[in-house]
């Protein structure tokens, strides 16, 4: 399991009756947003746009942590700090890993969302 479900389940306590819908909504938003961010990261890698690369990596790090995608969050954090010092082109393998982690996280979260209904 790439996803630490407890990160999201923590909200169940607060949200009470609306928890299912709330968590499902968060997951839905995360998947849309995350896919977009991975796209931005790969696009910036190609175009050499460091600023958007860094911001997207940062955001992905943050939101991935929110939904419990710890490994993805770690890779994003690594990219966020590496891009400050390294040439973007050297980060391509890491970005590939990021994309892979994202698809794994996406699949698991999607499954979890379907469980919720």
């Amino acid at each position: 399991m790439t996803i630490d479900i407890s990160a999201l389940e923590a909200y169940r306590e607060i949200m009470g009756e609306e928890a299912d819908a709330f968590i499902a909504d968060i997951i839905k938003t995360y998947i849309q947003n995350g896919a977009n961010l991975v796209q931005i990261i790969t696009d910036s890698l190609a175009s050499g746009d460091k600023t958007s690369f860094e911001r997207a990596a940062h955001t992905l790090k943050s939101t991935s942590a929110t939904v419990g995608a710890k490994e993805l969050s770690a890779v994003a954090a690594e990219l966020e700090s590496l891009c400050k010092t390294e040439a973007l082109s050297t980060l391509a393998p890491k970005v590939g890993q990021l994309a892979q982690e994202f698809s794994k996280a996406e699949a698991e979260l999607q499954a979890h969302r379907e469980e919720l209904g």
Binding site: Y11, I14, M15, F22, I26, T59, T63, V67
Partner: peptide
């Protein structure tokens, strides 16, 4: 907060 995921989480808690 620019990120929709974090927006939702924060708004959800604030709403509670």
């Amino acid at each position: 907060e620019d990120n929709p995921v974090n927006q939702k989480v924060a708004l959800g808690i604030l709403g509670k």
